[in-house]
Design a protein around this nucleic acid. Structure first.
Lengths: 202, 202
DNA sequence: GTCACAGGAGAACGAAACGAGAACAACGAT
DNA sequence: ATCGTTGTTCTCGTTTCGTTCTCCTGTGAC
């Protein structure tokens, strides 16, 4: 946040590799291991980059400890995901106070970043999405036919619905017989993300 | 949480081996046994690592006792849970090969130990439990009225059903109109666990 | 061209990790 | 009592590792 000067090419490459490593569950490496993984022949060069990353606050300082190369929480993926709010049919997303986060097992997440929403209401009950469930949303602006998406209508109302494209129109299906199918012109519907996972506690 | 300094390589290796051992049901080893299993030649070195793990709170202190190497509960709790098999209506649980485990966020777990099952079939679809979902089961031999349980009928068939007690009988409801309600005498129904969580990937 | 700079190679040093081995005390079985 | 096993503690040498240093090379700006 404070020392926000851009990283050089090589520093970025080291950081990317560290993040990749951690995502795959490897433990903290030694400098020699990192060297061979990065195709370097000298620890000294690598050490320069790591100290630069420490100065940038992206890597935790390793005070002489062996295998001390660890990512800082900012760059670190601790398996949690921001819980942004509640979503229901026909209302905008209700923001949840503060910056709450919720733990999510890796296999429920998509590839990239995603966020969580609490479901309010029974509008998707026939899709097995109940009131109180937590859904994981991968931010996207497009979706395949039949995917469940967070759709923003007229820039106002965000809802969780199953999306179909039919002859120039967009159909948003509530999976609940009591709710009618909604049809809109593509211009009115903006896709904000797609459903990639669900968690429920009993 | 308190003394959370990273373990060294060798310490981690010892800890991993101990966890593996315990998960496979072996009893507590002696230092010599551990040495040969780990490929070490000296008890002294191993003992140093074990005391380090004790300091880290991952192994219970063995005050001179023989075969006193026991793991702390925190060491065993890596946020994963055994994935025991698949469950469907009317068939016994299909064991899944090996000792597979699956990561589960802490808030989905009940208080104690629990395990995971993959759901096969649509018999609980109206309860929002779909084919392919992963359910978290807390082992118990009793349940409150209306809870979803893993019930073993006549010691043979395990199913996931909603349980009600009605006038001396036990009713097992499939949450699917196509499946009839099953009624049994209490003697024929054995409760194996209760549903505490659910995960689904899209 | 000169200059600055990013990037890498390699050597050297001190500290820590690691494992071997020996020695000793406590304990159990024979 | 005696012997073997086990936990514990110690020293010692080797390896690994982080750190620092100097030196070399390419590149872009001036």
């Amino acid at each position: 946040m404070e020392n926000m000067q851009a990283l050089t090419h090589a520093q970025q490459r080291v950081l990317d590799h560290l993040i990749e490593r951690q995502r795959e569950g490897h433990d903290a490496p030694s400098l020699d291991e990192l060297c061979s993984e990065l195709g370097l022949a000298s620890r000294g060069s690598l050490h320069k980059h790591i100290t630069a990353l420490i100065d940038a606050g992206l890597v935790a300082p390793m005070d002489g400890k062996q295998r001390g190369v660890r990512l800082t929480s900012t760059a670190l993926d601790d398996g949690s995901v921001p819980l942004l709010g509640r979503i229901a049919a026909g209302r905008p997303i209700e923001a949840i106070s503060g910056h709450e986060r919720i733990a999510v097992p890796p296999h429920l997440r998509g590839r990239g970043e995603c966020y969580a929403l609490k479901v309010r209401g029974d509008s998707m009950i026939d899709a097995g999405i109940l009131d109180g469930d937590t859904v994981l949303i991968e931010p996207r602006d497009n979706a395949r036919n039949g995917e469940v998406v967070v759709a923003l209508i007229d820039g106002e109302n965000a809802t969780l619905k199953r999306l179909y494209r039919r002859s120039g129109e967009i159909e948003l299906h509530s999976e609940n017989q009591n709710f009618p199918v909604q049809r809109y012109t593509p211009a009115r519907v903006q896709i904000q993300g797609a459903l990639v996972g669900l968690m429920r506690r009993y």
